[in-house]
Structure formats: structure tokens, C-alpha cells
Design a protein around this nucleic acid. Structure first.
Lengths: 174, 174
DNA sequence: GTTTGCATGTAAACGGTTACATGATTGG
DNA sequence: CCAATCATGTAACCGTTTACATGCAAAC
């Protein structure tokens, strides 16, 4: 899912500025499964406009850059739906933490401990974020609940198994 | 975690060719959390060699390109450990499926059904792959078990909640 | 006889991140 | 007074994917 498609999707919910689209990512629980930065959103919106898939309306503001409010066109809707009908790319889950833990036996015990602390905290924060999220469609509820399920499962697993790595690699410390 | 670091990590387990490193990704359960293709592995190994972090030994073969067997150097080990001591980037989970389901209400019921079928199958296959995997270190066991935990939780969730999206969006079909 | 496995590598294209540039307003 | 929020955008850089190029051997 490239940033253009993601922007189109968000615009099916209603018009928005580039800034607001980014905020949706940071707040609404979208970012658990898709990502985009300003550096990719703004160029994406320009291109979508050129391609006639979205329209812009500039709202003048005092002492601020104009708000550029984007709305999806009929062509945009068609193309977005078409992209959802194509085979979807597979999930990708990348975890530097898990990779690092593959080598826990090479690391100082303190480092393994710290890595777990940080990772647990990150997962707890993401779970808390989802607990606060509220949905407008069945799909959003589904995404939120799936996210919660995953984070909860991961956290449970970490609590049960972190000792395996934190003790296994430093028998001398016992 | 860039490909260079990943290659270094794999080489801490013993020497290997680029081809074998790729196979580890495809088979050993590594690919659930990190990824790399030939197009990135071969250049990565060349660069690591130039930087003195790995060494190559060419094994001549009849009627085949020479096997280039790479092994990690002391400098490579140091740098690899150093990279694991730095703060680790956060996990990224990207899912085109979940993104598409955010818009299930815009899709034909058949499409939603098919998407679920495909996604369930993908997760089942990955789980089966992990069931076959065997570990050599505590870290590997940890990674395998965490992967299993996640896939199992996702599959359970899908079985319980797919009806929410498959029926909610086609009340006329009742 | 076709596919799979072994085995290496290059080059172009792609997509995205990061950092930079600008600047007023509001809240702590 | 400083940080955060609002608001847009560009450009350089980075890393990776994809497609291409080559070619024999073994298995089905």
C-alpha cells in the first residue's frame, strides 16, 4: 500500500488537509498497520491532484500558509476501489528487537534486560493508544480490536518468556 | 536493521555464502521479523568485505560459479555487537489486509470474503512453517515461539470476528 | 521437457525518510 | 521563555526491490 492509495482511502471518509491526514496516522490507530510521513504525503497529494483523483480547495488564512483542503473525485474513488480489488501484498512485520534477541547469548545481561524493558513499554503504549481509539465503521473497530489482540498476546508472551533469555545467557550471575 | 547488519548476524553463527544466507531467510523462520533479497544481500556482502568486517574464500566449482564463502572477522563481530547495543528501531507492522478492511463497507461482499480466505491461509501457512522450525539458541526458540503466539492470536481473532465484516456490509444479503 | 535448485551479480527504478526552510500562535 | 501546534513544501539521500543476465544439473 503506497502513500497515494492510503491518502485516497482516508479521503473517502471526507475532505482533509495534508496535515490532518498525518494526524490521523499519529492518533487514530491507523499507524499500527500503515505508515506515512509529511515528506511522502505532500508529494502524494500533489500527484493525485495532477492525476485528477483528488481536488484541492485553498482556504486563505491570516498569518499562516493557506490550508489546502483535498477531496476525492469520482475517478479517485474508482481507482481506490480498484486497488482494493487487486491481490493485496502480504503483511510485513519487522522487528529489530526480535532480531537482536536472536543474539541475546552474545549480549551483556544488562542490555537484554534493558531491551525487554523498552520493548514492553513500547507495546504497552501502543495498546493504551488503541484503548483510547474510537471507531466510526465496522472496519475501524476490527482494526482496533485486532491491534489490541496482537499487543496483548505479545505482552503476555514477553511476561512469560523474558526470563528464558534474561537468565539463560548469564548463568554466572546466579 | 539493514541488510548488512542482518548478514553480519547470520555470519556469527558460522560461515555462509550469499545464497545460503538467503535460504536462511526463506526457511529458518528469520523472515517473520526481518527480510532481505538477493539484490540487497550480494551488494551488502561486497561492502562488508571492503570494510573488513567479513572475509571471503572462493571455492572453485565445476560448471558453476565459484562459491564465495563469507566469514565474519573480529572487526565484524565488534561492529555487530555495537549495533545491537544502540537503541533499536521500533517494530513496524504493515498490513494491506487490515488497511483494506478499514474500507470493507465500500467493497463487494465476495471481495471481503475472498480477502479473509487468503489472509487466513497466509497466516496458517506461516504458522505451519514455524511449527517445523527448530532452534539452536534460546533466542531462536524465543523468536519462533513469539511468532507462533502472534499467528495463533491473529487466527483466533479472525475466526471470531470475520463475521462482523462479512455480514455487516451486506444487510441486503440476509 | 520443464521446473527446481544451485550460484553469482548488476542496474534502473522506486518509494520513502530525514533534514531543512519558514513562521505565527497558543499554552504551560 | 520555550515547546508545541498549525501548516506547507523541497531535496538529498538511502535502502530495497525488480528485472535482467548467465548457465548447468538433477528431479519429476
Amino acid at each position: 500500500m503506497d502513500v497515494r492509495t492510503i491518502c485516497l482511502g482516508i479521503l473517502t471518509r471526507g475532505e482533509a488537509t495534508g496535515y490532518e491526514i498525518k494526524k490521523l496516522f499519529d492518533e487514530d490507530g491507523y499507524h499500527h498497520f500503515v505508515e506515512a510521513s509529511f515528506g511522502s504525503i505532500y508529494p502524494a497529494l500533489s500527484q493525485l491532484t495532477q492525476d485528477g483523483l483528488v481536488e484541492v480547495r485553498a482556504e486563505a488564512q491570516e498569518k499562516r500558509p493557506d490550508r489546502k483542503v483535498y477531496s476525492i473525485t469520482q475517478a479517485g474513488r474508482s481507482q481506490f476501489l480498484a486497488s482494493l480489488l487487486k491481490p493485496l501484498p502480504e503483511d510485513r512485520h519487522r522487528s529489530a528487537f526480535v532480531f537482536a534477541m536472536l543474539f541475546s547469548h552474545l549480549l551483556p545481561p544488562v542490555r537484554v534486560h534493558d531491551a525487554f524493558e523498552t520493548y514492553v513499554r513500547q507495546n504497552e503504549e501502543k495498546l493504551a493508544q488503541l484503548d483510547k481509539a474510537h471507531s466510526q465503521t465496522p472496519g475501524e473497530q476490527f482494526a482496533i480490536d485486532l491491534g489490541k489482540t496482537i499487543y496483548t498476546a505479545v505482552l503476555d508472551f514477553l511476561r512469560e518468556h523474558r526470563a528464558d533469555l534474561e537468565t539463560a545467557q548469564c548463568p554466572a550471575a546466579e
